[in-house]
Design a protein around this nucleic acid. Structure first.
Lengths: 246, 246
DNA sequence: AAGTGGTCTAGACCACGTC
DNA sequence: ACGTGGTCTAGACCACTTG
């Protein structure tokens, strides 16, 4: 162990440096489920920090499902099953990777949209605003999985309609090209049947059941909407996994 | 304000007393969205506690979506929309109440089940264990909404098959009659079409799309499975709402 | 300049589990 | 008895927002 030295001049808080270091150990499986994690007093000594700082690092890992703690016994790496169940705002690409599948994307259409009252009201912005539409077929191991129609506010990502989004993660592009950090999303899920066009694109029978997901994604300030997506998941190929608490 | 006096001899932590006091003010709308919440230093003085303790109370309220905090400005009550979006483990009854609808239940079948290998493996328990099956049609404003088949471990709720669960909340019964506190649940959601029996009970056409939800519910220790439920939601009447973070 | 939240310290006592 | 996590204190400095 001990490959980390905390940097006291970093803008990143100490608790965060320690938390991320431990998280990497867990995700890379250097630390496996049920393994013991250094105690709060260990971390205190090891890094010359106060116990409250060590506690914060462990506390956040617990809240995110990476570790569980037992009074009198210690802190341990949690089952990865529980971690996966946490509802994180992730891209299709990340999600498929977690499921051990290869994610792909085929762009069907990109265009600008403006003066769309209905769309603007979804975002809660002025009707004059310009949006960029990106319609893509998402593939898992080369097979059609999701028909995804995303609308992005052009003012935050000008020129996006020129970017080649075939087999590229949209969220990665937003982050790398526009410095956009996503914060949270509101999502509704319902069951319906695919119409003829949808079924054809998904290579399924018309009338096939689909999960219709609508998502409104906000920037990391939690207030500014940036993306509205409608996704149609093939009911026979996709299952949503959710962990509920309390 | 100031209707609370912290009890230093209570087994309940001080931060928890303050947190619950504030939560009640928010839920009862004494404090409304955007209202300012006492600052950390206010609480410190007001209750004669240290600032770290006040911070913990506010921090948990933030994590649960009740308040948002802005550096340099203060802490404020969050929009109730955001709070509702948090994924909480709730009963159908509670959920319908939140949506402003009247929840009902019609028992279709209750019976004991034992030596069911498939079922026992879902729970991860011995195949010999006895379960109680409760099949109910759940109604919203008197109309069929969900076909719900629950399996409970008899050892935790003996005699449940004798209880009249018509128009009664199962979770309320578990709590009041057996002292059972639920902790978390793992849930999968998929889209499929109803078969003839399901459609008939739900008073829908055969082939109607449904949200098929499977839930494994654990006690408050987070480890002991207690209930396994399969629910079929009418696709045309039900939408799942989810809030994603990070 | 004053007030706010964000981070951090160096202690303390307690409840609990293990040896 | 010892080590663990859970709570709590009384300070400190910082970054940020507002008047």
């Amino acid at each position: 162990m001990r490959l980390l030295r905390v940097d006291r001049h970093s803008p990143l808080p100490i608790y965060y440096q320690i938390k991320e270091w431990l998280r990497e150990q867990i995700e890379s499986e250097v630390l496996k489920p049920q393994d013991r994690i250094p105690s709060e007093r260990d971390l205190e000594q090891e890094f010359g920090i106060s116990r409250m700082t060590a506690r914060r690092a462990l506390g956040e890992l617990e809240a995110e499902g990476y570790v569980y703690r037992e009074q009198g016994r210690g802190s341990f790496v949690a089952e990865s099953k529980i971690r996966q169940g946490l509802l994180r705002l992730t891209s299709f690409t990340e999600e498929m990777q977690k499921r051990g599948m290869r994610a792909g994307a085929r762009v069907l259409r990109t265009q600008k949209v403006d003066h769309d009252k209905h769309l603007a009201s979804r975002f809660g912005v002025y009707a004059e605003e310009v949006f960029i539409l990106v319609e893509r077929l998402r593939l898992a191991n080369g097979k059609p999985m999701v028909l995804e129609t995303a609308f992005l506010r052009e003012m935050f990502c000008p020129g996006l309609e020129e970017v080649d989004l075939n087999n590229r993660s949209l969220y990665e592009t937003l982050r790398e090209r526009y410095g956009i950090q996503l914060g949270r999303a509101e999502q509704t899920v319902e069951a319906r049947v695919a119409d003829d066009y949808e079924a054809k694109v998904l290579e399924a029978r018309p009338g096939t059941p689909v999960l219709a997901v609508e998502r409104l994604t906000y920037l990391s300030d939690g207030k500014t909407p940036i993306e509205y997506v409608r996704s149609l998941y093939r009911g026979d190929r996709y299952r949503l996994f959710i962990e509920l608490r309390r």
